[in-house]
């Protein structure tokens, strides 16, 4: 079993922090193949890291970067934790590292949901800062999610490298009912966002369109582009109707005048 020095653990922590933050920036650093590469470099075992990264990359391929809403199991599981297991524990192969690290991938997924949930109050704080014309404080609030990502990433990488048992214990420490409850709450929270935007956009005459959107999504299961296109059909109709309306009344007026002459 290879010993990991304190410096190496710090380096792995920093690498994880960078890669995890990169997920929000959309630069594709939070992929198993990239994550494991850094671990391999720091620990001097690039070949094992490449194997771990490649296997996990293919297994996790369907998962994208920071798309809003749904949070998939996180590649930090196999990319960092799994690779650490494979390099430091001789009995762990790159393949078994993948399955061993899945609980971590799921736990990190919950952690991420928790960050987004904790940050749900941020718009309020930002609005307060703006009301006081405190623009630097506004920018701080607007950047805080990425700061939290970096901190959590560092903690995960460092702890994983420094003490695997501690990490294992922390995962089991979170009570099951709380994890489940947070997932349910995470599913309900977007309602607030949609309600906020509707409270600004939804004029009375747009209510049929809200109904239309719901029907298309819930009953017909249309993808978002399809919904937008159907909305566009009615919007274009409205546009052409109002565009031609002044012209039509003008023509009617002219016609009336001509008729007047006849009588």
């Amino acid at each position: 079993m290879q010993e990991i020095t304190f410096i190496q653990a710090v380096l792995i922590g920093l690498w994880t922090a960078f890669c995890y933050s990169g997920m929000l920036w959309g630069i594709f650093t939070n992929r198993a193949i990239v994550l494991s590469f850094g671990v391999g470099l720091v620990l001097g075992d690039l070949q094992t890291a490449l194997q771990c990264g490649a296997i996990a990359e293919l297994a996790f391929m369907g998962f994208g970067v920071g798309a809003g809403g749904t949070v998939p199991p996180n590649p930090i599981g196999p990319g960092i934790i799994g690779t650490l297991m494979a390099i430091t524990m001789p009995e762990v192969t790159p393949e078994s590292a993948l399955s061993l690290s899945i609980p971590f991938a799921v736990a990190i997924q919950f952690l991420q949901t928790a960050i987004y949930t904790v940050r749900a109050g941020a718009p309020e704080s930002a609005a307060n800062a703006l009301a006081k014309h405190n623009f630097s404080k506004f920018r701080l609030h607007a950047n805080l999610t990425v700061v939290l990502f970096a901190l959590v990433g560092f903690a995960l990488g460092f702890l994983g490298a420094f003490s695997m048992e501690t990490l294992n214990m922390l995962v089991t420490l979170i009570p099951d009912w709380l994890l489940k409850g947070l997932t349910v709450a995470g599913g309900m929270l977007p309602a607030i966002g949609f309600a906020m935007i509707m409270s600004v956009m939804l004029k009375k005459e747009f209510i049929p369109f809200a109904l239309l959107g719901y029907i298309l999504a819930a009953f017909f299961g249309l993808p978002v582009i399809g919904i937008a296109l159907v909305g566009a059909v009615f919007a274009l109709k409205h546009y052409f109707d109002t565009e031609n309306a002044p012209l039509a009344t003008a023509q009617a007026a002219v016609q009336e005048e001509e008729q007047d002459d006849w009588i």
Binding site: G69, V184, G187, M188, P190, A191, F194, I197, M198, M201, L202, K203, F206, F209, A210, L211, L212, G213, Y214, L216, A217, A218, L222, V224, I227, A228, V230, G231, A232, F234, A235, L236, H238, Y239, T242, E243
Partner: peptide, 25 residues
């Protein structure tokens, strides 16, 4: 004015559709 109205109509349609799919209970 009318373009922004038309755009809002698409917007409201999409957002209502997103609410029906994104919110999970």
């Amino acid at each position: 004015g009318v373009i922004s109205d038309a755009a809002s109509m698409i917007g409201v349609t999409v957002i209502a559709g997103l609410a029906a799919t994104f919110v999970k209970m």
